[in-house]
Amino acid sequence: MTGVEYIEARSVEEASRALTEQGEGAKLIAGGLALIILMNHRLLQPTCLISIRRLRELRYIRWDDAAGLRIGALTTHREIETSRVVRRRAPVLVEMEGQVGSIQVRNAGTIGGNLCHGDPREDPAPALLVLDAEVTLASAAGARSLPLRGFFVDFLSTALQPGELLTEVRVPPLPPGTGATYVKFSHRNALDFPVAGVGARVTLDADGVCQDARLALGAVGPTPLLCDEAAGLLRGERPSPGLLEEVARRARALAAPSSDVFGSEEYKRHLVGVLSRRALEQAWQVAGDGREATRGRGRQRSREGA
């Protein structure tokens, strides 16, 4: 592998121009986790590597009352996992990131690189999808915002256009009474992709009735899958075994897993049902606890006032 060009981009614009000029054989590299594995196995032989690792302006975690949680594309998994801002604003992301690979993987891998790789088995997508995350895609020509749900096109294929790079992930502020969770089933406790991974989010009103819900599946289709129809059944409802079973049935029907070394199609489909029910129950519990805690604080304040 000699003669490979190496360009160290000093700005998003420069990286975008280099991508356009260098054509098909050029690949962006950040943490390198996905790309170097493909190169080490000779599945990919780029003619040019465009490094964006030193673009400090893409490495941040910020909270903004209007936009919500803003995470720069070059933020590492470990930085998200250990961020106090993320723990406070979107704890499900801390829970999810702690299950990505190993500490070595999380110290080097970036959230932007993870999403752009487009592997449906990655953990972040289902958790971000249930939070209605958005991404910013930028090029030398300008930037556009896209809901993450429109980003994954097919296996290892995303909505990124030639010359575009992902620069930011945003999680809008969550309504009060929201609980979210990510449940992963894998054969090993670390360093493993999920056989199936399920993200769930439930938003309850003051009476504990579901106002809104999301359910997303990882590793059981060519892309991460949002189960809108299944989750929609929960709106206006309280949890009951029958209702959750019907939601799980629809999630099983939507899943499109393939048989492989991780498990048979049938087994994975069964798993989707079990994990969907479990994830929704947990999200419901977290949402309910949040409501209680808010009410508790409210009561205490009124006592103080009296």
Binding site: I29, G32, L33, I103
Partner: peptide, 16 residues
Amino acid sequence: ILDGRTVHACLTLAPH
């Protein structure tokens, strides 16, 4: 250990 954090040397690009 790279700048205080563990990484895989096999997945770290030398120029990085």
